[in-house]
């Protein structure tokens, strides 16, 4: 069984973000980067499938500049078998343009199952996985929380508000992975050493035509500090006045 996992390198969400001077992206200085959480779950799921079968191959693919090789190596150290970097140095925010490049790579790979994270934790567009499926003409099940591959059929579960859906479709197919399905494993030193010897191919990315441009990125305004206007019932008239005049909620 051949599996492909699309992964994205994203900044550590605990970091403190600043807007870059271009105004359309973040300032990457001082930020730490790692695999997007959902992509980590996807890689874990794929690796577990091959481990259970005792056969198969997991290919991890990432689009971006050479720094994404670090993220690919991490997936290899978790247990993926080979990696492909679709080299592209300029940032792309258009999900369709990215999906076009991924689909071009995936098209002739003979993959039975393609896994993506439900979304990238930084940009949260939720579009790339579905676009890839559409471009390849494959069925897609999005945001799945359970997965079972058996006899050429993929069965998946999706969580809804207070309910769930069970969906199945034939392979080959695309699935996007929600949380709760598996925790990305912590790579062992054995895995890290083995990853150094695994193949990592670098290919130019065939990024599609850009359909939209990111115009401007802004940080939300700092929330003003809370104010204590007094204690007990004496403070009520002032509170009411402020709610009317300043907050304008009454």
């Amino acid at each position: 069984m051949k599996l492909a996992v699309c992964i994205k390198r994203v900044p550590d969400m605990e970091g403190r973000f600043k807007i870059a001077s271009s105004g359309t992206g973040i300032d990457e200085a001082g930020l730490k980067f790692d695999m997007s959480d959902f992509d980590g779950y996807a890689a874990e799921v794929a690796i577990q499938i091959t481990e259970k079968l005792g056969a198969g191959e997991v290919t991890v693919i990432s689009l971006g500049p050479d720094v994404v090789q670090e993220t690919l190596r991490k997936a290899l150290s978790m247990g993926a078998h080979r990696a492909v970097q679709l080299k592209h140095d300029a940032p792309v925010s258009d999900g369709l343009a990215i999906a076009t490049a991924l689909a071009a790579e995936l098209k002739d790979g003979g993959y039975d199952l393609i896994l993506c994270g439900r979304m990238a934790v930084d940009t949260q567009n939720r579009s790339t996985g579905a676009f890839v499926a559409e471009l390849l003409g494959l069925p897609v099940i999005t945001a799945i929380s359970q997965l079972n591959v058996d006899g050429g059929v993929v069965k998946a579960r999706r969580e809804l508000e207070g309910a769930y859906e069970l969906i199945e479709c034939p392979l080959p197919a695309v699935v996007t992975i929600d949380e709760g399905i598996a925790r990305a494993r912590y790579p062992s030193l054995k895995g890290i050493m083995a990853a150094k010897k695994k193949p990592l191919e670098v290919k130019p990315a065939q990024v599609g035509a850009v359909t939209y441009q990111l115009e401007k990125m802004e940080l939300p305004a700092d929330r003003a500090a809370g104010r204590i206007i007094g204690e007990g019932k004496d403070a009520v008239p002032e509170l009411v006045r402020l709610l009317k005049e300043e907050a304008k909620v009454l």
Partner: peptide, 19 residues
């Protein structure tokens, strides 16, 4: 060797590495 440890330790490992 085996990546076996109490799962609550993982965030600490990841954070030491990242931050």
């Amino acid at each position: 060797g085996e990546s076996r440890f109490p799962e609550e330790v993982m965030p600490a490992f990841e954070s030491m590495e990242q931050r």
